[in-house]
Simulated assay, not measured.
Amino acid sequence: MSRTLPRDIRIGFNSLTGYASVNHFHFHLYYLSHKLNIETAECRRLAGPCYVFKDFPCPAFVFQLENKDVDELIRSVMKVIKLFLSKEIAHNLYITRGTSLDGNSTDGEYDTVRVILWARKPSYGIKDISVFATAVCELAGHVPIYSCDHWNNLSEEDIIPTIKGVCEEEFEDMSPKIMRLFLDNNDVE
């Protein structure tokens, strides 16, 4: 029996004010038998093990599993999360299989695990999900629509500005801080 999980298993996390409604670990573990652009989107290195998307609607910080070193991946991701927490930055995290961030995958082969972190505008109070939410699944490109009317009348051009607006300013603000974090190779106190 194989100990490998199916390629279509995804994990998502919404931080407090990152669309988690109460202070708890709000994880999503689900099976989605469709490919998402986030799994193959091209990236460029920001600093150290941290990459950023070249052209993706919602800018994010991206990491990958290298040399099967899960501990190193976790250390790198936790450095950024600790920085977010120290600055009280709302965030979302998504884990999926995907292609290598350095572009060395052959024929689009899913040969790594990608971990994506979005710094985002905080969300407070009652959630408005009348059309769609702007939480981890939606940022990753999996956008559940809650009514037939909206499904029939909504387009990608309607969704992208909303999703992009959740992360763009925070990404720009956090990018130099994260770059320094990995260039200085210091942990956040």
Rank of each mutant, 00 (worst) to 15 (best):
170 E>F: 00
176 P>K: 04
119 A>C: 01
155 S>I: 01
189 E>M: 13
127 K>D: 04
142 H>R: 12
129 I>K: 13
168 E>F: 04
118 W>K: 01
134 T>A: 12
133 A>S: 14
139 L>R: 04
113 V>G: 14
184 D>W: 08
180 R>F: 09
159 I>Y: 10
106 T>P: 12
104 N>V: 06
146 Y>R: 06
131 V>H: 06
161 P>W: 05
156 E>P: 01
107 D>Q: 11
146 Y>L: 07
114 R>T: 01
165 G>C: 03
136 V>W: 06
170 E>W: 03
134 T>I: 08
103 G>Y: 00
102 D>E: 14
163 I>N: 07
143 V>P: 00
127 K>C: 07
152 N>T: 04
135 A>V: 07
144 P>E: 09
157 E>H: 14
186 N>K: 15
160 I>V: 14
177 K>C: 09
136 V>C: 15
121 K>A: 07
162 T>R: 11
109 E>M: 11
174 M>Q: 00
110 Y>S: 05
153 N>F: 13
189 E>F: 13
181 L>N: 04
133 A>W: 12
119 A>G: 11
168 E>C: 04
185 N>H: 10
170 E>I: 02
104 N>Q: 15
120 R>I: 09
134 T>H: 08
179 M>L: 11
171 F>P: 02
140 A>P: 03
170 E>C: 01
117 L>N: 14
162 T>N: 07
119 A>L: 01
175 S>C: 09
135 A>L: 05
115 V>C: 03
144 P>D: 07
112 T>S: 03
172 E>P: 00
181 L>I: 07
129 I>L: 06
153 N>R: 13
137 C>R: 15
112 T>G: 03
181 L>G: 06
126 I>P: 01
178 I>R: 08
121 K>T: 12
151 W>D: 08
126 I>T: 15
107 D>N: 13
153 N>I: 10
161 P>Q: 03
102 D>R: 13
158 D>N: 10
126 I>H: 08
141 G>F: 03
164 K>R: 14
161 P>V: 00
184 D>K: 12
141 G>D: 09
137 C>Q: 14
167 C>H: 05
148 C>W: 12
152 N>Q: 12
117 L>K: 14
175 S>N: 06
137 C>N: 12
189 E>G: 09
120 R>F: 07
107 D>R: 08
101 L>P: 06
165 G>R: 02
122 P>H: 06
161 P>N: 02
183 L>E: 15
136 V>R: 09
149 D>M: 14
184 D>N: 15
164 K>Y: 11
177 K>Q: 11
147 S>P: 05
103 G>L: 06
150 H>S: 08
164 K>L: 07
135 A>N: 14
127 K>E: 12
144 P>T: 02
116 I>W: 00
187 D>H: 13
102 D>S: 12
178 I>W: 10
112 T>K: 03
169 E>V: 02
135 A>F: 03
164 K>V: 09
168 E>S: 11
165 G>M: 02
115 V>T: 04
148 C>S: 13
107 D>C: 12
153 N>K: 13
155 S>Q: 11
182 F>T: 04
131 V>A: 06
146 Y>I: 03
180 R>Y: 11
136 V>H: 10
137 C>I: 05
167 C>P: 05
118 W>A: 00
124 Y>A: 03
149 D>R: 15
106 T>F: 09
152 N>R: 10
103 G>C: 06
146 Y>H: 13
165 G>H: 01
103 G>E: 03
102 D>M: 08
166 V>H: 07
156 E>V: 15
154 L>M: 11
140 A>H: 00
145 I>Q: 06
